[in-house]
Computed example of a mutant assay.
Amino acid sequence: MPDIVKVLLIFIFILFLLSRKIYIGYALIFSSLLFLVFYSIDFYKLPSVIFNGLTSKVSLNLFLSLTLIKSFEYALKQTGLMSKMTEVSQVIFTNKKISIISMPLIIGMLPSLGGAYLSAPMVESSTKNTNMTADEKAFVNYWYRHPWELILPLYPGIVLASAISGVSLRDLIIYNLPVAIIFFIFGFLISMRNVKNENIQANKNILKNIYSFIPICFVLFPVVIFKIDLYLSLFLNILFLCLWFKVNMKKLFEIIRYGFTLDVVFLVVGVIIFEEMLKFSGAVDAVASEITHLGIEPIYVFIFLPLFVGLITGVSIGFVGSTFPLLLHLKETFPYEISLAFVAGYTGVMISPLHLCLILTRNYFKADMKGIYRKIIPATFVMLFSALIEFAILRYYS
């Protein structure tokens, strides 16, 4: 059996498990067992290979980063900063159009599961006395929660992509930034063209709480500007918040402990084991050889494989964790190629009918799915097209 077929069957099994609502971490662990069926594995060396992978610096950094992201979000809620951010965003933007998109944009900075339901009532409130349809409101709520996932290291997808690929988080953010800007601008053009522009009077008393945005900035800037590891930036900011708000040691321990959950443990374990099995079995080298022999340009695999898996899974960690280990061994990769693969996968996630934010948003606004897709599909493919243009320019000049 050709190795491409073997690996394809393993991917189909992953997608089957995900379709049965099996968590991505467990799905990757179970799917790794198929390598034992399809390949001759040296069972004496396998335990040490997996142990070395799980205890590597990359694995530990990834685990600490994903854990402290949850702890940081919990700290913002416990200290009341999250609610203050929401209050400020409601009055700081005096332009009507900016005010409408500000709610999902601000709340979307934190990767809360089901956060679309939190911003939806605010979008509904800010669009009163406008002629926006339910489909347009749903698009605003859905679209503007998601530009951050391309560039904000509070989202696990980009952290996972950096950890697996070896591309620094800073570089990946920089390469994704032009796409995120296009994401924002094109979505604005689509959603705000029928909204009348008007100014809103700001409540000056609320603006004193603008300091609530500082922790987000303090997490992002050290990572992007000084290349500090994300987990260290998160930990220092959690400590700073607890000191500033005079949180006692018991509460501090609760905040840190909040992030240490089994889903994070099994996500990291699943990703690492799957990656190690791909390499140790010889599957990646064999698939790379077959793709080269067939004359398939690896760049097409970089685009369509993540896009397809993103479409099927509806989550970024799904396409990153399952496809990036294979992509990295098809050829020598450049950071802009990893960025393109990430954007392609994210395109699939954004149009996936399994995307939880899309499901929640559609239900809240009682919107027509076809009407939402008429806006989502062209917007997402403009995003992908902009990534392809960036890729072409960077490859030409590299």
Rank of each mutant, 00 (worst) to 15 (best):
L262N: 13
T127E: 04
A161V: 00
M369P: 11
L230C: 09
L243S: 14
T94F: 10
F319V: 06
P215E: 02
F365C: 03
V123F: 06
L234W: 04
Y397E: 15
S289I: 06
S89V: 07
I272K: 00
I291G: 00
I206G: 07
L243N: 14
V37P: 05
G157K: 03
L113H: 11
F11P: 00
G371F: 02
P178A: 07
F235D: 05
S48I: 13
G345H: 02
Y346M: 09
N363R: 11
G310D: 00
I92F: 11
S89L: 02
P111V: 09
R257A: 15
F226K: 14
H329K: 06
L311Q: 10
F226W: 14
G53P: 00
A138I: 08
F11I: 02
S322F: 06
Y44P: 14
L356Y: 03
I22V: 15
H293K: 15
R395H: 15
L305V: 07
L54Q: 03
A367Y: 02
N95W: 06
G80R: 01
I98L: 15
L105H: 07
F35E: 11
I24P: 04
I299P: 03
V265D: 01
T313R: 00
G259N: 05
M1S: 10
L252G: 10
V315Y: 10
I92A: 13
S352L: 06
K250H: 13
L327F: 08
I24M: 10
I151K: 08
K204P: 12
F226P: 12
L81D: 00
S89G: 10
M1I: 07
Y336L: 09
F221V: 15
I190R: 10
L105V: 03
I214V: 13
V320I: 14
F221M: 12
E390C: 14
T313M: 03
I4Y: 04
T333H: 12
H355V: 08
S162F: 01
S65N: 04
E87W: 03
T380V: 15
I174M: 05
T127M: 02
H329V: 01
P153Q: 06
L8W: 11
